[in-house]
Design a binder for these strands. Structure first.
Lengths: 131, 131
DNA sequence: TATTGACTTCGGGTTACTCGAAGGTGATAT
DNA sequence: ATATCACCTTCGAGTAACCCGAAGTCAATA
C-alpha cells in the first residue's frame, strides 16, 4: 500500500498530479484509509501507470477516462481498446523519432559551443546562423 | 521565402502556433511583406526550428526567449548558451528513454489485445488486471 | 506539549496553446 | 465586373492540464 507521495515518487510525477488524476476518476477502485487518505495498491498503481503513459502520448484526460471505462466493461470492449492502443502505438513511435531528431539537433549545438569554448580554429566550417 | 502556412507544414506545427511564437518574439528578424504578412527566410525557419526543439524539451517560452536573446548578443554568451544546451541535452536523453518505455508498455498491451481478439487460449498467462 | 510533516479539500492562477470572429488582399471562375 | 475562394492579418476569449498555496486534520516524535 502506497501513499500519494510514495506512488508519486515511484512513477515520477508530482503529488499534485497524482491527486488530480484520481480526482478526475482516472484511477478505478482507489481505496482510502480511515482518515480519508488515498491508498494505492498494486492494481491502482498499474492504472496510474497506464494513465501516465497514455497522457504522455498526448491523449486528453477525457479520452483516457473513456478508455479506462472501456476497460471496466469487460471483454466486449477489447476490439475498441485494441484500436485505441494501436493509434497510441503509432503516436508513440512518432514521438520516438522526434526525440531522436531533437537529440541530434541538440548534440550538434552542444558540439559547436564546445568547440568554440575550446578555441577551435577555422578548420571546421561553422554555420554562424546557428548560434 | 515561406508563408505561415508553408513553414507550419514544413516544421509540422499549426499556423496558430507559428504565429504565436512569432508574436512572443521568439523569431528574430522576422520580415513582413507589403501587406504585413509574415515572411520566413532560411534564417527565420532555423530560429523557428530551434524554438520547436527547445519547446519539445519542455523549456518554457520565457526561457526560450532568454536563450534567443543570448544568441543575439554574440560570442560573450557562448558559455551560458552551452550550459543551457547541456541541460536540454540531458532532458532530451531522458525523454528518449521514456519514449522507449512507453512503447514497450503499449506494445505489450497491443499484443495482449491482439491475442485475445485472435482467440488465443490459456497457454499464455495474462495478467487480467491489465485490461 | 509543541512541532514536524504528510495528508486532505478547494479555489484561484498560469502556461501554452486553440479557436473563431471580423476584416483585408489577390487570383480565379462566371 | 463580381463573386467566391483561399489565403493572410489582429485580437480577444476559451480551454486543458496542471500548479500552487491556504486552511485544516491527524500521527508521531522531541
Amino acid at each position: 500500500m502506497y501513499t500519494v507521495k510514495e506512488v508519486a515518487a515511484l512513477l515520477d510525477m508530482t503529488n499534485h498530479t497524482v491527486r488530480y488524476y484520481t480526482d478526475q476518476g482516472l484511477v478505478p477502485n482507489l481505496r482510502r484509509d480511515d482518515h480519508n487518505n488515498r491508498l494505492f495498491d498494486e492494481a491502482t498503481v498499474k492504472w496510474l501507470l497506464c494513465v501516465k503513459h497514455l497522457r504522455h502520448c498526448g491523449m486528453p484526460i477525457d479520452d483516457i477516462k473513456t478508455y479506462i471505462s472501456l476497460c471496466q466493461e469487460g471483454d466486449s470492449t477489447v476490439k475498441e481498446r485494441y484500436e485505441i492502443m494501436r493509434r497510441q502505438q503509432a503516436v508513440a513511435l512518432t514521438q520516438l523519432e522526434e526525440a531522436k531528431q531533437r537529440i541530434a539537433y541538440i548534440d550538434e549545438k552542444v558540439g559547436n559551443y564546445f568547440d568554440i569554448l575550446n578555441g577551435a580554429t577555422d578548420d571546421k566550417d561553422y554555420d554562424k546562423s546557428t548560434y
